[in-house]
């Protein structure tokens, strides 16, 4: 083990889910047994898979989900600062996705519907703890806040698309998403 680690510098990967549903992370895990050889060459930094909370310098950052609150923007900026290559993963990161359906309404209207007037609401009040990040007026794509290098469309992107982007980085080539791996749904 120790000789292996000395001979290869592993590619560092960070992942996170912002205004998403973790479905993209689940799809990533659909690479199944292909993750075993991958572990020899990549190492996860900040990710729900590692529970590391603070991102270090990484080769690839994979962000799932769009930006719906100020904390999302902050995390996106941190990823951009620390990752050589930033990848927007899935429909929500790319164009807001399902959370962006709220863009028809103001953030205040959404809060009122959820916490004051919605069906089955008891003890109606809008949460106002200072710890809670403020909602953005609209859910916006990742690329509206930071520069994004690659985009993996799909809801979620298929496991093969994750393999392709990681293999491309490992092999220092441009990723090629074929017709089947480039779906929006």
């Amino acid at each position: 083990m120790s000789t292996d680690a000395a001979s290869t510098v592993k590619v560092k990967v960070a992942t996170c889910s912002l205004a998403g549903c973790f479905g993209c992370h689940m799809s990533f895990l659909d690479i199944d047994e292909r993750i075993i050889p991958l572990i020899d060459v990549i190492q996860f930094d900040r990710s729900p898979l590692t529970d590391i909370k603070i991102i270090g310098d990484c080769d690839i950052g994979l962000i799932e989900g769009g930006l719906c609150n100020e904390e999302n923007v902050h995390v996106a900026q941190q990823f951009r600062q620390h990752c050589k290559i930033l990848v927007a993963v899935g429909a929500c990161a790319i164009n807001g996705g399902v959370p962006a359906l709220r863009n028809r309404y103001s953030a205040q209207e959404c809060l009122e519907e959820s916490y004051l007037h919605g069906l089955g609401v008891v003890d109606a009040q809008i949460p106002n703890d200072a710890e809670l990040p403020a909602l953005l007026p609209k859910v916006v794509p990742l690329q509206s806040a930071v520069h994004v290098d690659y985009f993996l469309p799909g809801c979620p992107p298929p496991a093969d698309a994750f393999m392709e982007i990681i293999n491309a980085v490992l092999q220092k080539r441009e990723p090629q998403l074929d017709y089947a791996t480039r779906r929006f749904d």
């Binding site: 690329q143 017709y179 480039r182 929006f184 749904d185």
Partner: peptide, 19 residues
């Protein structure tokens, strides 16, 4: 519209969505 996006290699757009 989606099919043409697939065929023309669109993965995303840089424009601010007009909602």
């Amino acid at each position: 519209l989606q099919a043409l996006a697939y065929d023309l290699g669109m993965t995303h757009y840089e424009f601010v969505p007009l909602d």
